[in-house]
């Protein structure tokens, strides 16, 4: 048996994509223009990604939407075939031994529509237990155990369409655990959940680790990745740009001060002036729609030296500083440090 639960080696996934129409001149002949299609191109969703995950480890794949997290998960769970590179789950090759891989995995993909809403919670689990080839007697015991664990026993015989989003997600998680798989892939498991339901799922993830499961978790919530993961791979534009423990990643910018400001009346042209201040290494801005103000993150080698000039620059031409803090670096700051953009851009 392999030392690693999951191994990805030089994984590449390219999708066919037609070039945008504006990039290809249309023919002059009106008839030819009618049938004109831009030439086929390619889009690289995952670009030479490699990592190894130890048994019993929680590994977080952190990145913004469209970074390649879900494509990576889909290749690992055999839904997509890699363009090149290899991956092994529990020692089995994802292309050549796909069925062995499926037997070793429990998977939660993003979204709550991956179960049948016209079936009850119990019927869903019975159905998927049969698909996972679990012997009937074992399945019955396992389903009771899971419903109890998820605190869904009293609602098990109700149609899923009557469940809350959090309850549906617990049925989805139960489905992933049915076969007691050694490895669990969780793709954005708390997406769209209210804070309480999300906290409950996070507690369960930690509990599953205690029981010996290996977990690969993708998320774009940095707090979630930080709280749950033993190691984190930061992924952007299909590439892993950093891979380490959360504390080691944050250590990378320990020499930097992180300044977080809230500004009213911010004008985009001010960004250039602030970035040109001596000592500012990174800056990203984000509009907080709910509060009607802008949040500005700055990274600098010496906050004390630049603060007077910074405040002077911000409090001009009708803009004014609402709040300013020098904060402890988070994983989001690591991401900003590495890419020059925010996780949720």
């Amino acid at each position: 048996m392999s030392d690693y639960a999951i191994e990805a080696l030089d994984l590449v996934k390219k999708f066919p994509r037609r070039a945008p129409a504006e990039q290809t001149p249309a023919p002059k002949n009106p008839l030819a223009r009618l049938f004109h299609r831009p030439p086929p191109g390619e889009f690289t969703a995952v670009d030479h990604v490699s990592f190894q995950i130890h048994r019993g480890e929680i590994f977080g794949l952190l990145g913004p939407n469209g970074a390649g997290k879900s494509t990576t998960i889909r290749m690992l769970c055999t839904l997509l075939e890699p363009t090149s590179g290899t991956a092994r789950i529990n020692g089995y090759d994802v292309v050549r031994e796909a069925n062995r891989v499926r037997q070793s995995l429990g998977i939660v993909l993003a979204g709550e529509r991956s179960i049948y809403w016209k079936l009850t919670g119990r019927e869903n689990l019975e159905y998927f237990a049969a698909l996972y080839h679990i012997p009937p007697e074992v399945a019955r015991r396992r389903i009771d155990e899971l419903l109890d664990y998820m605190e869904l026993t009293s609602r098990a015989n109700e149609l899923v369409e009557k469940y809350s989003t959090g309850m549906r997600q617990r049925i989805v998680l139960s489905r992933a655990l049915l076969a007691r798989p050694p490895i669990i892939l969780l793709d954005e498991p708390t997406l769209g959940l209210d804070p309480q339901a999300a906290r409950r799922i996070r507690e369960m993830v930690l509990d599953l680790k205690r029981q010996g499961h290996t977990i690969l978790l993708t998320t774009h919530y940095m707090e979630e990745a930080d709280q749950l993961s033993d190691r984190i791979g930061i992924i952007d534009q299909g590439k892993i740009i950093a891979l380490d423990t959360p504390s080691a990643l944050k250590q990378r910018i320990r020499q930097q001060d992180v300044i977080k400001m809230e500004v009213a009346g911010w004008k985009p042209e001010m960004a250039e002036a602030i970035q040109s201040l001596s000592g500012v290494s990174q800056m990203v801005s984000r509009y907080l729609e709910q509060d009607g103000i802008w949040e500005i993150h700055l990274q600098t080698g010496n906050s004390r030296a630049i603060l007077p000039r910074l405040i002077e620059h911000v409090n001009t031409n009708g803009t004014h500083l609402v709040n300013l803090n020098i904060v402890v670096p988070t994983l989001e700051d690591v991401f900003i440090h590495l890419t020059g953009k925010a996780l949720r851009d």
Binding site: N99, R102, Q103, S104, Y132, H133, I134, P135, V138, A139, R142, L178, A179, R180, P181, P182, Q211, G212, H213
Partner: peptide
């Protein structure tokens, strides 16, 4: 040691 319950 976790082993899958799946038996094809």
């Amino acid at each position: 040691h976790l082993t899958s319950l799946s038996r094809t």
